[in-house]
Write a protein that binds this DNA or RNA. Structure first.
Lengths: 204, 204
DNA sequence: ATAGAAACTATACGGTCGGTATAGTAAATC
DNA sequence: GATTTACTATACCGACCGTATAGTTTCTAT
């Protein structure tokens, strides 16, 4: 059972993330966060040593949540087929679906946001950002490797690059979605990547 | 012949862009820009009404430069083949090459940077950001439409989504390149998209 | 039941810095 | 030689960050 303190802390992190994704880290003041979270400055500094400490805990939280999110979708997909290729295609469909709902509550990716302000953060935070991306990469590589054992590729491709391509497409499409305020951009781009996988492994 | 004033102005814009791409717009102070550009505060405010005005002119400049950059690569590609599909494939190869050199001088994309701080900007600036993306889209659509008249697709695909996919891949891959400090991530991802085009239009 | 730790509120303060304003000046232009 | 261009130099106010301090409530363990 989470204590009251953990709930407040979680609330601060959630609200801070939401604001930061729209105004950037430097563009978001502590005052703004505490006002939105309806706490006082003392309360904030009880939970976090300072703004830098907040950044670190935001990234750690993001890493955990994202890893769980992707793993849940993979689990659901894996339960619906024995073929790794079909599992991947189902996963991408589920992912596209899930991303259609998300954007109003979760308008962007903290990894991208922090990367475009990288000089503001210490090595600690930057490392977690990298770890996050590497985590996705390894998750995708695992599935792609399984596909490769059953289905030959039409064009010889490094599966790390193919895994990173999904990350790229998602991160890029989030930018399009945000810029146009059109969540369907992200949904459709994930389906474009899905088409690429179908073509690459010859799913007819 | 550019006047002295235009040179200074261009210098400010170039330096400001470089810093902003690493620290974000809010994270970059005018003091920082004028120090790097070796001018005084007065000089800065002679050229720009304020920080918001700088943002607008940064985006306008980016839009023009980027449009020219892509058009030059397309012109070179078009001169090397008659077949639109081959033109596109050559274009993507030239683009990958060009992106390999760039990153040290040009560490990121202003469109992405501003999109992740969108609440900092007025409608004017946000519109230019959108125009920029739409400009790329239309450039790519033009070529894809030409391909479509000669080569059938293996999977029926909206060419607008296919055009946006290149933008997504580039924007996403820039984030990977920045996060890992590995320019080859961007180069390789452009080649992944190239493979997608090859597969989609059946280039054997 | 109660001591004490946890989880805050309320408020205030100082130093820094960002954005703006303004006055003055040197060089180019007409 | 007068005006415009292209700046320099400097001053200012408010905002923000981080910190401090004193008090209050809520939970926890014995």
């Amino acid at each position: 059972m989470p204590t009251k303190g953990e709930l407040t802390r979680e609330n601060i992190l959630g609200i801070a993330e939401h604001i930061i994704l729209q105004k950037g880290f430097s563009g978001t003041s502590i005052d703004e966060i505490i006002e939105a979270a309806d706490i006082t400055k003392g309360g904030f500094f009880y939970h976090f040593k300072g703004k830098e400490d907040l950044a670190k805990h935001l990234m750690l939280r993001y890493q955990v949540a994202d890893d769980r999110f992707f793993n849940q979708l993979f689990d659901r997909a894996d339960s619906l087929s024995e073929d790794p290729l079909q599992q991947m295609l189902i996963f991408l469909k589920l992912l596209a679906e899930a991303m259609g709902d998300l954007p109003s509550t979760h308008p962007g990716c903290l990894v991208a946001s922090f990367t475009y302000e990288s000089q503001q953060f210490n090595e600690d935070v930057k490392q977690i950002v990298c770890d996050c991306i590497v985590g996705w990469r390894q998750l995708f590589i695992k599935k792609l490797a399984a596909i490769g054992e059953v289905h030959p590729m039409k064009i010889e491709t490094d599966i790390m690059e193919l895994a990173d391509m999904l990350t790229s497409v998602i991160e890029g499409a989030i930018i399009l979605s945000k810029a146009f305020n059109e969540p369907e951009r992200l949904v459709n781009q994930i389906l474009q990547y899905r088409n690429h996988i179908r073509l690459l492994y010859g799913d007819t």
